[in-house]
Simulated assay, not measured.
Amino acid sequence: MFEYITKSIIPIIIIIIITYGMIKGRKVYEWFIEGAKEGLKVCINIFPYLLAMIIAVNIFREAKLLDILNNMISPIAGVIGLPKEVIPLVLIKPLSGSGAMGILTDILKNYGPDSYIGLIASVIMGTTETIFYTVTVYFGAVQIKKVRHTVWAALLADMTAIIVSIFIVLRFLI
């Protein structure tokens, strides 16, 4: 029963909204069409920024910069208890959610989901954000050129999430 409700919650919400709009005498279909048109315009506006971000991530990977950064950061990361194996996830996650998901998948395959490394990687994946992707796409879509303190605040939030992730995993493993 619960599984049926879970799978049908979105259609139920849509039906409720359409029914409510029809009862109130609103032009539900016309508003839907207008929303779809605006959505396509947003997609067209976002596409160049998205393409630039994808190209930047691919250059980062192909140039082996990830391996170089991993070796440079691992001594510092060891001080806070971050395993060397999780550093690539920490470096890629602000750039690409799908790239981070690929790294998380590799970590879980190699070390297991219940290992210290797997648990930290999982918590970090769930608590951090794709900062540069989000800023690039959404700020670009509304033509904001100066991001001011957004990137620094987001990076600080991600660093906090990483440190707290390590603390939480250690706390619940012990």
Rank of each mutant, 00 (worst) to 15 (best):
Y4T: 13
I5N: 05
T6G: 01
K7A: 13
I10N: 02
I12L: 15
I15Q: 12
I18W: 01
T19D: 00
I23E: 07
G25R: 13
K27Q: 15
V28I: 15
Y29V: 15
W31H: 15
F32C: 12
E34G: 09
E34C: 09
V42Y: 13
V42S: 12
V42G: 12
C43N: 12
I44E: 14
Y49V: 02
N58Q: 05
N58H: 05
F60L: 07
K64T: 05
K64C: 04
L66N: 02
D67H: 07
D67T: 06
I68M: 14
N71W: 09
I73D: 03
G78S: 08
I80R: 06
I80D: 06
G81H: 05
G81F: 03
G81R: 03
L82V: 07
L82K: 02
P83F: 10
P83E: 11
P83V: 14
K84I: 08
E85S: 10
V86C: 08
I87E: 02
I87V: 12
P88T: 08
P88F: 12
L89V: 08
V90G: 06
L91F: 04
P94F: 04
L95T: 02
S96G: 00
G99W: 01
A100K: 05
M101T: 13
I103N: 01
T105L: 10
K109T: 09
Y111D: 04
P113V: 11
G118H: 08
G118N: 10
L119C: 11
S122E: 04
V123S: 09
T127D: 03
E129H: 04
E129I: 00
T130E: 00
T134W: 00
V135I: 11
V137S: 07
Y138S: 10
A141I: 03
V147W: 08
H149G: 14
W152V: 13
L155T: 07
T160A: 14
A161D: 02
V164P: 03
S165T: 08
V169M: 08
L173A: 10
